[in-house]
Design a protein around this nucleic acid. Sequence first.
DNA 1: ACCTGAACACCGTTCAAGT
DNA 2: ACCTGAACACCGTTCAAGT
Lengths: 228, 228
Amino acid sequence: MTSGAGARPGVGRPGLTTERIVEAAAAVADREGLHGVSMRRVGRELGVEAMSLYHHVAGKDALLDALGDWLMQRVERPPVDAGWRAGMRARCASLREVMREHPWGPAIVESRRAPGMALLGHLEAVLECLHRGGFPVQLAAHAFSVLDAYVYGFVLTEQSLPFEPGGGVDELADELALPADDFPRMAALIEQAIVGRSYDYGDEFEYGLELVLDGLESRLAAAGPGAR
Amino acid sequence: MTSGAGARPGVGRPGLTTERIVEAAAAVADREGLHGVSMRRVGRELGVEAMSLYHHVAGKDALLDALGDWLMQRVERPPVDAGWRAGMRARCASLREVMREHPWGPAIVESRRAPGMALLGHLEAVLECLHRGGFPVQLAAHAFSVLDAYVYGFVLTEQSLPFEPGGGVDELADELALPADDFPRMAALIEQAIVGRSYDYGDEFEYGLELVLDGLESRLAAAGPGAR
DNA sequence: ACCTGAACACCGTTCAAGT
DNA sequence: ACCTGAACACCGTTCAAGT
């Protein structure tokens, strides 16, 4: 009675669950890109036919929704004990880090409409942190909007860079081989700012983030310390 | 001799060119999303078999590269006579407008690696505008990075919003029906900032853009008027 | 209840064949 | 030179059938 007689115990096959399916989808996406996430491919990842997945997931769209929320679970919420600035810095860094580890992140955020529980919970934590930092509701909305736009946009543009993230930009100068006569400013940029020094586009992230945070801080000060 | 004897003149069918193919692809994307852009579908749009396209385009990847550059051609460059701030404001607005007209824009920017001529030309014009505004090379790179990240990110997040862009957020409150006990800050935000007033998330764009521009202006001032 | 095989209408791309 | 038909190895999804 503890374990059905007719059922193959099969310890090797834990049985299909929505969670296991989403994790398999993430593994496939990590390895082969979002492009490679197909029902058949995810099924194979689990040693199962594609059609079996339909008993646990409504369809591919629902699977992608779940995958988006799986990603959002990995993003750290702002620490409760830190101030708003440190909190935002930490959660923006985590958001970027997650998107870096899973390069299919921006694409899935972009293609989805239905926000999952992880996203909502994260958003709530962000708003709570800003509230504690003294942000009026309206300003908190502004802050959230501009910060999210910046982080997602940075990751997006970083990924579409024509050179490898880690490597220098010397490749770019070679690969592109853009005529300096037609593009004098770009040539100057590449020469002065990049060649020679070890340039990492990733360093731009902190610069822009601090710029945005500075902007928010001055807006907060202008709103007045009493404007709670 | 002027026109071959055996060739069907066929005024109705201008003959396939790369340009016509890219335009057809854009039309399909506008109508059915980037998802709907398939070689077969684009072929049908032109009254031609899918395989004919391969005589003018190397493959689907090359077609998408060309489609990305087609999009970038539509983005207005900063006016030469305006100052850097007005110039950046104008080109950021245009970039956003183009992405709004063609919602598949961010997706294609994200998925492509090879920058086309339109993108390079646009980038050059932006750098030129900043240079004239007195931006040192390094600061121009920062400016470009943070502005692009902001605009792309804003469009991306705007599109993944769970409510219709034009409409209010009343739908959200209904559709989501999130329990106010679990999400007090979000509930407060929706209630205070949105319900009642006619809230348009699009208004956030200008707010954030000005915040970023303010940040750049103060960085520029700190670099010193003589730091050319 | 859960899994599956066959089937349907799609994909991108190759290749030999037509004009 | 340019276009095409058939073919190959893929898609998501439905549905009737198995256990």
